[in-house]
Nucleic acid binder design. Structure first.
Length: 273
DNA sequence: GTCCAGGCATGCA
DNA sequence: TGCATGCATGGA
């Protein structure tokens, strides 16, 4: 990766394995929107970003070098060797063909709080609705960080809402989960910073202890918000995929089950049922 | 009208 | 430990 600064933007050359549409719109993050010019706009960690890829394959990020170093380099996990990981995963024939078809999916490093709240909302829900609910949540209770773009509201802010305030966003029966999650985070009963520093099994146990968080939501939060790439969330789509692995997951997934999972998830949504 | 979606809590055996 | 059931909402 080579980073150069331009006026109001930075340019990244020589980035391997990053397809913006596949990565930003594959159901791991819910706040990215494709713009009319083909670029993508979104927000994370309280910062707005617009990103696009030019004809030469370089990425143009409308941000400062400081914010790139502080937020986006880690968010896009640019120090991880995805080429190497993908070639290992391709020892499995199904994943091999899905990586060929959808090369460039990365697992983003999202903020733990945002990931956890988002995946509590996601349960028994579809991606289009999830995005709508989260957009409304941010626009109503986030801070404006750039015209029309809002931060993801913090626990303090959300703890001031009532269950019916959450329900008014369209969260349905998940409103009571969100209310308690926000309250318990503010009180310190839930400490995501501590969980982030725990080993996997301990972190998973802590998440499963949260009202409204089961194994699927816990694994999504761990994979997308807590950097545990070995987590393998199984939802209704992945249950269909598992029929192709009657003997369990292949050895070549080891350590990167979550990355294999995201390719298979995308494949399943496009090809099964 | 029915079925479904990045499921979970609850009750019961 | 495992299984059945109810749950909000909106699009297909």
């Amino acid at each position: 990766m080579i980073m150069t600064e331009d006026k109001n933007s930075i340019i990244l050359k020589d980035i391997k394995c990053l397809n913006l549409a596949l990565t930003l719109d594959c159901g791991q993050a819910f706040r990215w929107e494709k713009q009319k010019d083909g670029s993508w706009s979104g927000a994370a960690y309280g910062k707005f970003l617009n990103i696009r890829q030019n004809d030469a394959g370089d990425f143009i990020l409308k941000t400062t070098a400081a914010d790139f170093e502080k937020v986006w380099k880690h968010y896009f996990d640019l120090n991880r060797d995805y080429e190497n990981i993908c070639s290992k995963l391709k020892e499995d024939s199904l994943v091999s063909s899905t990586i060929d078809a959808y090369y460039g999916i990365r697992i983003l490093n999202q903020d733990p709080w945002e990931a956890l709240v988002s995946f509590v909302i996601s349960q028994q829900n579809n991606i289009k609705r999830i995005k709508g609910i989260i957009k409304k949540l941010c626009c109503t209770y986030g801070k404006e960080i750039c015209d029309g773009w809002y931060s993801f509201p913090d626990a303090e802010t959300l703890s001031r809402l009532s269950v019916s305030d959450f329900e008014a966003l369209g969260t349905g029966y998940r409103g009571k989960y969100l209310k308690k999650l926000a309250d318990d985070t503010v009180s310190g009963k839930i400490n995501l910073y501590e969980i982030k520093n725990m080993p996997l099994e301990q972190a998973r146990t802590a998440l499963l202890d949260i009202y409204g968080v089961g194994i699927k939501v816990a694994n999504c939060a761990l994979l997308f918000g807590f950097r545990f790439t070995e987590c393998f969330p199984v939802d209704v789509w992945m249950k269909r995929v598992l029929d192709f692995y009657p003997d369990g997951l292949p050895e070549c997934f080891k350590g990167y089950e979550g990355i294999a999972q995201q390719y298979l998830f995308h494949w399943a949504r496009n090809n099964l049922k």
